[in-house]
Each structure stands twice: as structure tokens, then as C-alpha cells.
Design a protein around this nucleic acid. Sequence first.
DNA 1: ATTACTAATATCCGAGTAG
DNA 2: TCTACTCGGATATTAGTAA
Lengths: 225, 225
Amino acid sequence: MKPSLWNTLYKLSLLLTQEKSLKTSTTRLSDKFGLAQQTVSRHLIILERLGLIERHVTVKGEEIKITTKGLDELRNVYFRLKSIFEGISETFIFEGRLFSGIGEAAYYMSLKTYRDQFIEKLGFDPYPGTLNLKLLSTSDVIAKKELEAHLGIEIESFKDKKRTYGSAKCFKAKINDKIDGAVVIVDRSHYNDSVLEVIAPVYIREKLSLKDGNIVRVETFAKTD
Amino acid sequence: MKPSLWNTLYKLSLLLTQEKSLKTSTTRLSDKFGLAQQTVSRHLIILERLGLIERHVTVKGEEIKITTKGLDELRNVYFRLKSIFEGISETFIFEGRLFSGIGEAAYYMSLKTYRDQFIEKLGFDPYPGTLNLKLLSTSDVIAKKELEAHLGIEIESFKDKKRTYGSAKCFKAKINDKIDGAVVIVDRSHYNDSVLEVIAPVYIREKLSLKDGNIVRVETFAKTD
DNA sequence: ATTACTAATATCCGAGTAG
DNA sequence: TCTACTCGGATATTAGTAA
């Protein structure tokens, strides 16, 4: 997302206050934003196409509302700035329903470059495969975004002859108050925001006698410095 | 400040974490920021000129530190986003040392357009003149910035044949726990951030028997919706 | 390696204006 | 009035290099 667009979204949010919609015109906004009417119009069109705002355009003006996706975009910056200015350690607690993935993670985790990094940076040799948890509440999904904004343990990307392997970020975690492991947030995951991927030095499913559908509790520890 | 520059400052802050300095190179940064090395170089030059960062450039790389001014720039956005996402009422308490201004404020406050707005929006006809308080601690200065990010009572700008008269933002306030008045934050004030300007329907100095140098306590109430 | 200049290119903005 | 199109000019970015 282009900085100038983000700026327009941000300034919109300052006028909208709370999830209410705003009835205004591009001319009035251009005045407030210090941009030309045409520029505001163009920005609004793009923001709408990106799904960040919703509009109801009439010949007399328009009504604008920031979508959940748009708010997420802003919240992400908010959380990152928060972790800078209120730089304190925080504990995040998640609850999710266990489900089976397609076993892809096991392949990636067995790659030497990744595995060596896990051992070096997390201090354990992870069991190949992740425990996938579907987060149950939106507050957990938002908390995950906040966690993501914190500094974690960085797993670096690398490439071989064929392709590039993406980066990831880990946070030490405790699973069901028993097992020490880590939450892995993959940069370009095929899962969406509502899925938490957990790794540990042991096979968690077996150790905790878990089956698909079980609720699992994960406590993570984020430090900001 | 241009959005693209703000973006670079913001991304820098994510790497710097806490007021530490960062030893890196424009190439490494260009990688992280998704910009060309030349663009990063140019941005850093401009940010430095604006006094938002400090650099120590060598032929082997450079060391970057975000200045107080730069952090303020980021904090401002942080506070505004905070008031959106944590939209709650807040009380701010300031303590400042009374000093005499040049009496300019009295002139402005006597202008009909301003005065009418004060009466309508604040509910009182202000004594012409402001009580100027020099804030004593940096935490108070930061609190003032946070207050500024909240929604206040807007006093609109206007123009006559000669010039434009700027806008301002007010927050209801209680002075020394006795007098009800308001804090006025003038958009382009000739005072800096460490000065708080207070108005009231009465002549505060007299009512509270205040003299230059006295410490005055101001409690303000900010609502976010 | 670096940083950062100059010049070419890509992108963005806003004046004019249609609908 | 309004939104939003086209298009020329402004601005920002990047490629090619020098130091």
C-alpha cells in the first residue's frame, strides 16, 4: 500500500472517529487534506477498490465508511507504534480449535537452513510439523495482529537454485500450560489471520493426547527490546 | 511532511526499537523498505535536514538515530490512532509556571467571529486574554501532545479583507480545582509545545490571586466521541 | 564495500471539464 | 453543486556511476 494512500486512509479515520460513516464531499475533504479535489476522488476510488473503505456515492456527495480491512491496516501501524512507545513485555493468551493441515509445514521445517535457525534462535530442534489452531474469537485474531507487531525471533529467508523460502517470526510460547514451544508467524502463509501455528521440540498432539476439534490454549511472551 | 518520507521514518523506527542507534547501510535498508538504494539515501538526507534523524555517515555504512523531533512526529500519529482504537474519555492534568505574554491573545479573543464561537461552543464569554503556563516536566509536554490528538471543541478559522485568522481547538478545563475554563490549543501558535494557554469567563489571575512564577494546576477533560 | 550525484523514467497530482 | 475523466506538468523514484 502506497504511503500517500495510507495517509488518506489515516486522515479519513481521524474524521470518522468511531465506526460511523461520514457524509461529505471530495471538495470538503480536499480542503481538510490539503490535496486537490481530483486527488481525493482518485484516492477514494483506489481505497474502495482495495476494500479499505466503502462508499455510497451520489450526485450530492458521498458517504464513506472504513471497512474492517481498512481498520486493520490502521491498527497494524497503531500496534507497532504502541510497541515502540509503550515498549513493555506483554503476554498474549490465545485459544483455538485444533485442525489438521496438509502436512506442508513438516517439509519446510525439515529444510536445513530453517532447522538450523530454529535450533540456534529458539534453543530447540522442532518436531517437523506445526500444530494448527483456528482462533475462536475476533479478539484473539486482533491480539494475534498485535503480537505480530512486536519484535519476535526472526527466522530469515533464503533461496536455493529453484526458489525463495520466505521469512518468519517466532514467539516463545507455552501450550496448555505444559509444553514449551513457539508460535510461528509465516510471512506469506497460506493460512489467514485466524490461524495460529505452533511448534515445539516434541510431537504436541501425542504428548497432550490432542485430537482435531480440541480446544488448545497458547500463552505467548512478547518482548519489545 | 510528505507521506513517503513519514513512511521511511516509521519503518526506521521499527528497526531502531528503543532510542538506540542503528548501524546499517542504505542497501540493507532498501531491501527492507522495498525501495531503491538511491531512494533510501535521498530520504535519509531529507529526514536529516528536517532534524528528524541524526546520522553518522562513513564510507563503510552509517549509523542512524531518530531525534526527539522525529519521535514526536511518530508519537503524534500514535496518539491519534490510540484515540481511535481505545476511544475512551481521559483526564489530563498539567502543572505549569505562570508567565506574562505580550497581550496579543486579548486582541484575538475580542474579535467577534472568535468570541461568538467561544460563547456558542464553550458556553461562556471568555475574559479577553489567556493565562500562559510554562509546562514544567517533559511528561506534561508529551501529555499535551496526546491531548492535542483528541477530539476537542473546534474553533474555526475565518478571513477578512486583510488576512486569515487561524483555527484552534479547546478542551474544557478546571483551573486550580476552582475555576471552570478551557485550554486553547492554537493551530499556529507563536508559543511552542511547552506552553499551555488557558481561558475562562473570569480574570483568572485576579480570582485566584496569581502572580508570575506561581504554579498553576489545570485539569482537562478530553472526549473521543 | 560504501554514499549520493545526475539523468532518465515512472508515478502522482491537479487543472480543465464532462456528465 | 456533485464525482471522476483526460492529460500535461510536477514530483518522486530509480538506473547508471563517481568518489
